[in-house]
Write a protein that binds this DNA or RNA. Structure first.
Lengths: 232, 232
DNA sequence: GACGAAAGTTGACGGCCCGTCACGAACCTT
DNA sequence: AAGGTTCGTGACGGGCCGTCAACTTTCGTC
């Protein structure tokens, strides 16, 4: 249709994206940020799509040009989070030459990430005053779990791990990671390395290998750090 | 007010409870059972109070004489479940004379219960096709967690356990229990003892103590049982 | 620069769910 | 059997849901 004469445009690189494209990205971000704020404020369950819209300069109809429901917004936030942490976790595990490095690298990276990014992990999971937690295993998160399972199997085939049930082991790591992370965030001194040390010792040697706490009994809140290390 | 003459009634024991009391219990049960069915059918998130009422011969207003919201119904179901399992878990741990019995008793009892009572554990937690899981830590469940923590501390003071962070240990047990339970229920052969053996070995001796699986690689679905036991 | 097409935004709309409440029926007491 | 109390009922106003026709903005073309 167009002759050779008419071809004056030619976007410099990819930055001259046009206003259309720009506001599209901007609106999406506007919604995601508003949603995160509102989820943290009201809790996931109590939040309505209208609440999210109201925290935005946009009209209600616009929301549905970007997301189908609040579930989808939630999923987008979770996916973003998973996309940020997954490569780091995988790199840590691929680099591991020993079982110790595999386990400890995984936990250290994860707990550090959780502490740095409490917005997506903590605030959103907890509901406002109810003790209702919501967890959505988005495609990215499931892929992250699957990746962990594959890395475990690779480690097994390399002789790094004993030939255990990789599915259950993956589930155990995930369960401990999420549950301890939640506890860690409720403490006054958030100490990711301490949490990682605890979890690592548990997986490497069981309860008997876990670092001992200094104070015998009493003194719960003030003293969360792990001090003394007594092997099995 | 009443003279000595007028006292003809005198309920035999506690069975002549009166119709009022009887239908009250019955209606409550009607709602709880309908709710469980509907939650399993639609998933917790998609379920509305109206859905529950429609699965019932009652009128909408009646629902609110028994529960304030679907959250409260959910909580009641969870509480019932927790009330059934808690005493068994506690008995198991109190009876424990060794760290092995403490851990293994806890996991065996829990996984067996989950397998027997999939309705309250599995069907309700998963949403219909979304991978959205809902977990509500009801007062009874929180009390159960707290009880576990206390039992751990008692075990520590008795010298059964090393002096570890009982809060993190409790969180780890809970995380592993819930996450493995979920995996266990997705398998074709649901094998609570195998799941318990896995978790127990993990907590007693770490990954290296976990029973090995028989088949090297491949054969994932068909072969879930743990066969061979190689110690650390 | 102006024009037409395409893309995107807007807010009003019908439908459903929410929680309440005035009413009446069922039950219990005397 | 009559009076009082408790509880089931369903209609109601208010709010949220997702849609859609009309409008505004951007883009490609001349």
């Amino acid at each position: 249709m167009t002759t050779e004469l008419t071809r004056p445009q030619a976007p410099p690189t990819a930055l001259r994206a046009g206003k259309r494209e720009k506001t599209k990205v901007q609106n999406r971000q506007l919604i995601l940020e508003a949603a995160q704020r509102v989820f943290a404020e009201l809790g996931y369950g109590a939040t309505t799509v209208r609440d999210i819209i109201r925290a935005t300069p946009l009209a209600s109809g616009t929301f549905y040009n970007y997301f189908k429901s609040k579930e989808e917004v939630f999923q987008a936030i979770q996916d973003d989070s998973a996309l940020r942490i997954r490569p780091r976790l995988r790199a840590e595990r691929i680099r591991a030459a020993t079982i110790e490095e595999f386990i400890s690298g995984t936990f250290r990276t994860f707990f550090q990430y959780v502490a740095d990014d409490q917005g997506t992990f903590h605030a959103i999971r907890r509901n406002r005053s109810d003790a209702m937690r919501v967890r959505m295993d988005t495609p990215e998160i499931i892929a992250g779990f699957e990746e962990l399972r594959e890395d475990i199997e690779t480690a097994i085939s390399k002789g790094l791990f004993p030939p255990v049930d990789s599915d259950f082991l993956m589930a155990s790591i995930v369960g401990v990671a999420f549950e301890i992370a939640e506890r860690m965030l409720t403490r006054e001194d958030i100490d990711p390395p301490a949490a990682a040390d605890f979890a690592t010792a548990l997986f490497l040697g069981g309860v008997r290998a876990i670092p001992h706490v200094g104070i015998p009994r009493e003194k719960t809140a003030e003293h969360t750090g792990i001090q003394n290390t007594a092997g099995a």
